[in-house]
Nucleic acid binder design. Structure first.
Length: 796
DNA sequence: TTGCTATGGATTTTT
DNA sequence: TCCATAGCAA
């Protein structure tokens, strides 16, 4: 039943050199389903790629029989790079990619069966939101009651769960309305020939589920399915994998439940347990040998995560010594915290304390939320330390680029109303809100797209709109047969975009970016042979199998198709432009701020996942911030915060700093937060307090000294200590002493009862005495601000 | 159509 | 505090 090919010499392959026993076992697993529990820094990617290389080298599979899925383009690229360095194999022809990239490829190949135009456009999150806004306006949906963002979240959530509108339970009137909007949105997308990210997955899944020949074909083809970061898969992605895995396939899932930090966007750690059960997984291997960090760092991570109840269970170990202790620093203010960091970094770069100076790019500052970067940036900037902030707009998300892409998209697909709306009056050409409204009304009445409705608009508005459409049409004809580069250059000129930004005072960067777009296209064409993501090969690999039986075409369905002659007669190929547009949507590009410079790296803990640095600062370790207040009212949320902290700690190779501040400016208010509870969950022996321990605000304010967990947050309180002494020259101006201890007896996360609103969770506390107020989340009535001198809140 | 002011909201993010 | 967005005036 399973493949019997296991060559005797296989375990001697040089590929297996330098692997530890667990890694080797994982790489050489028999062809059966397996789960690899891969701890941070345990060589996960190495195992994954070596496994593929080993399977290929030992002849157990040919390149076409492998399906390897990742979440990010970066991970996919890394896998391909490493694989091609191990074996002389054409990785570009292999099915290695992101979930969405592979679904895109699949849908292009089978667009007819998927009921899509071959050159369907992909809506990114921005596009999706504007499509929803447009739709809601058109159907007069009250955007107060149904905020577009929330509707978007609802739709994306449904798709992540694999639910079409008719499958969603309309439990209340509100949901019923949302389902209705979802339904209308679907119709709109279909009419316009566009798909959002969720749709790429969902439609691929449905095609596999409903079309027996297709499903069986791919099941026979993909004998080895490998999935990276399995803990991050959502319900739909898991279902998709189940469709692709046939009786002869082996699924190798690699993941780490302790690093599951994306529940908020639909990730389901439970997929790991489900996988083991539903696939009857025979092999589970734990990779616990860590090659990244010293043991003080690792012990801290292990101890912390042991406080989580829901775990598959795993403990990292290292052969490296204890290394330096984990340094803990308390500061008086966020400002002082940043100053201290800058000074510490300068010493690190100079080389004090370490054998040699540390490169700036080997220093990372991690924080829980983006808002925290500001103070740090200011301090770094003032000190003249180069830094790079991750996150923010990426290349293909920039407004000017989106505008240019919208022109290009209309060339491919005039019915794309999202793109139409974006540029119909940009650069301004006298088509105002009223003209557009007129056009939209006409389009709705006729049930057609905006372009098609243009001819029905009369008067000056009609003339202007007509001129716009004519311009696009002319452009489409002019660019026929041009190279991608020529098309883009022509569009940039003819659209007036370059001209427009050149005239703008601060448009120089934008012009530069637009010019960069040409380069992006150029490198896409040369590097990717325009089309790894968006099949530009003879498209319908399956063309025969769909219309006639494979046997009748002399194709052997049991041999991977990559080994068989491709059908080049269908002649159906995706245009380079359409391929590039898909690429732009699926790979939003780096945010290339100060690229190339040796700079300190600033990022959220989330975006640090998968990275590693010699030296890591984890900042803002305060109750309410980390763990974040929005996540600490329930067990699952808190455990995810803890995993987040675990991810943060395990980024560090040699040196780790943890810091928190007594006061912090947030949303224009000074907040007084106790230090994070995570400090209580770290091994004291691995820590070194740079500031005296237990002088902290938090521990000093335990109401009940017997119960160390009773803490007050943000409620103000005194600090009699002379903190400037502790923080040395970096101390900020003394914070005015506030003596009034909180009298209300509330704390964050506490369940309280209110006579009118019922039970709720305290999510914010601020102010002192009569000014004290609390923000409470009532499941029935939503989030309310309550003045504590007025409202009677009784702890439950 | 632009540009000002008021307003509200403010984890985490890839594709 | 600071940002995006909405509404309104010129």
């Amino acid at each position: 039943m399973f493949s019997e090919i296991t060559r005797p010499g296989a375990t001697n392959s040089p590929l297996l050199d330098n692997l530890n026993p667990e890694q080797r076992a994982a790489v050489t697993l028999p062809n059966e389903h397996a789960l690899i529990l891969a701890g941070a820094g345990s060589g996960k990617t190495r195992v994954l790629t070596t496994r593929i290389a080993w399977l290929l080298q030992t002849g157990q599979i040919s390149p076409g029989g492998v399906l390897a899925v990742t979440f990010t383009n970066k991970a996919a690229r890394e896998m391909m790079t490493r694989l091609s360095s191990m074996l002389p194999v054409n990785v570009r022809g292999m099915w290695i990619g992101t979930f969405h990239g592979l679904c895109n490829r699949f849908l292009r190949a089978h667009h007819k069966l998927a009921n899509l135009p071959q050159s369907f456009q992909i809506l990114d999150t921005q596009d999706q939101l504007s499509a929803i806004k447009r739709l809601m306006k058109q159907f007069n949906v009250d955007d107060e009651r149904f905020p577009p963002k929330q509707t978007q979240w609802f739709i994306a959530g449904c798709k992540e769960d694999g639910l079409r509108p008719n499958m969603v339970e309309a439990r209340d009137e509100e949901t019923r309305k949302k389902i209705e909007i979802y339904q209308l949105y679907e119709e709109q997308c279909q009419r316009e020939g566009v798909v959002d990210f969720g749709e790429l997955m969902l439609r691929s899944y449905e095609l596999l589920r409903d079309n027996d020949p297709i499903r069986e074909h791919y099941q026979r083809r993909f004998r080895h399915i490998l999935i990276d970061e399995f803990q991050d898969t959502n319900k739909l992605q898991y279902a998709w994998i189940k469709q692709l895995a046939g009786p002869e396939s082996s699924v190798l899932a690699v993941g780490d439940d302790d690093q599951s930090i994306y529940a908020f966007r639909g990730a389901r750690v439970g997929n790991m347990a489900d996988f083991v059960r539903e696939f009857g997984v025979k092999h589970q291997i734990k990779l616990e040998q860590n090659y990244r960090s010293y043991s003080n760092i690792l012990d801290s991570a292990n101890e912390l995560i042991s406080h989580n109840s829901k775990r598959l269970g795993k403990n990292l170990r290292t052969d490296q010594g204890p290394g330096e202790p984990v340094r803990v620093y308390e500061s008086t203010s966020d400002f002082a915290e940043a100053q201290w960091m800058v000074d510490e970094m300068r010493q690190l770069v100079r080389g004090e304390g370490l054998d040699a100076g540390i490169a700036r790019h080997e220093i990372a500052v991690l924080y829980r939320s983006n808002a925290q970067s500001r103070v740090i940036e200011t301090a770094l900037f003032n000190a003249g330390v180069p830094y790079r902030v991750y996150g923010g707009l990426r290349f293909f998300e920039r407004a000017e680029i989106k505008h240019a892409l919208a022109y290009l998209r209309l060339l491919e697909n005039p019915r794309d109303d999202t793109s139409f709306m974006r540029i119909v009056n940009f650069p301004p050409r006298g088509i105002g809100a009223r003209s557009i409204e007129q056009l939209q009304d006409a389009a709705r009445a006729a049930g057609c797209s905006l372009v098609d409705a243009v001819s029905t608009v009369t008067g000056k508005a009609g003339a202007n709109l007509g001129a716009f459409v004519a311009r696009i049409d002319v452009l489409r004809e002019q660019t026929l047969g041009m190279s991608l580069r020529e098309i883009i250059e022509m569009v940039l000129g003819a659209s007036g975009l370059i001209e427009h930004y050149k005239a703008e005072r601060e448009g120089a960067d934008r012009v530069e970016n637009l010019e960069e777009l040409v380069n992006a296209a150029e490198s896409f064409v040369s590097q990717e042979g325009f089309g790894r993501d968006a099949v530009a090969l003879p498209v319908d690999e399956l063309g025969h199998a769909l219309t006639q039986s494979p046997a009748s075409q002399g194709l052997d369905p049991y041999r991977p198709l990559a080994d068989q002659p491709l059908d080049t007669d269908t002649g159906e190929t995706l245009s380079p432009l359409a391929a590039f547009l898909a690429h732009a949507a699926l790979e939003s590009g780096d945010n290339q701020a100060q690229a190339g410079q040796d700079a300190v790296q600033l990022m959220t803990v989330h975006s640090a996942k998968g990275l590693e640095f010699d030296c890591v600062f984890i900042t803002g370790l305060e109750e309410g911030l980390f763990p974040h207040e929005n996540s600490m009212s329930d067990q699952d949320g808190l455990e995810e915060e803890r995993r987040l902290m675990y991810v943060a700690i395990t980024r560090a190779r040699k040196r780790l700093y943890l810091s928190y501040s007594q006061t912090r400016m947030l949303h224009g208010q000074t907040r007084y937060n106790p230090k994070s509870r995570f400090f209580d969950e770290l091994p004291e022996s691995a820590l070194k307090w740079l500031t005296p321990k237990n002088q902290g605000f938090g521990s000093g304010f335990a109401m009940n000294s017997g119960a160390g967990r009773e803490r007050y947050s943000r409620a103000g309180g005194g600090f009699g200590q002379d903190y400037s002494r502790l923080t040395g020259q970096y101390a900020s101006p003394p914070v005015p002493a506030q003596k009034a201890a909180p009298s209300h007896g509330l704390r964050l996360g506490l369940q309280v009862f209110h006579t009118k609103f019922g039970e709720g969770t305290v999510i914010t506390l601020e102010g002192v005495g009569d000014d004290a107020r609390a923000q409470v989340n009532f499941p029935r009535h939503g989030v309310k601000w309550l003045a504590l001198s007025v409202a009677k809140l009784v702890p439950v």
